[in-house]
Amino acid sequence: MSSAPAPVELERPDLGEAADTDRPWLTLVWNDPINTMDYVTYVFQRVFGYAKPKAEKLMLDVHRKGRAVVANGGREEMERHVEVLHSYGLWATVKRDD
């Protein structure tokens, strides 16, 4: 992501969902040099209904680690998320949790 104004407040990540083994498919978002940090944060809030601190945390994970798991659940649900994220221009993929 290209650098935009730095986000300010951060919250602890919600690890409860990612640890749920009944939700075996993941929606990943990959870092890219074009989407801006503020846009990606906004999209996470709008698409997933995440509060801004969680959206910013995920955006920073994407930015710093190259990718982040932004949702998990059933395969069809993850494919729908990826389709919506593609409509916003984010680089998202579905992956089985392993």
Binding site: E79, V82, E83, H86, S87, G89, A92, T93, V94, K95
Partner: peptide, 24 residues
Amino acid sequence: LFPDGYRDDDAAADEFRRFTELGL
């Protein structure tokens, strides 16, 4: 604009594209 929906699974990526790209 229309990226692959799966990164390491070409067959799944093709199938995802078949079902989503026209709509996108």
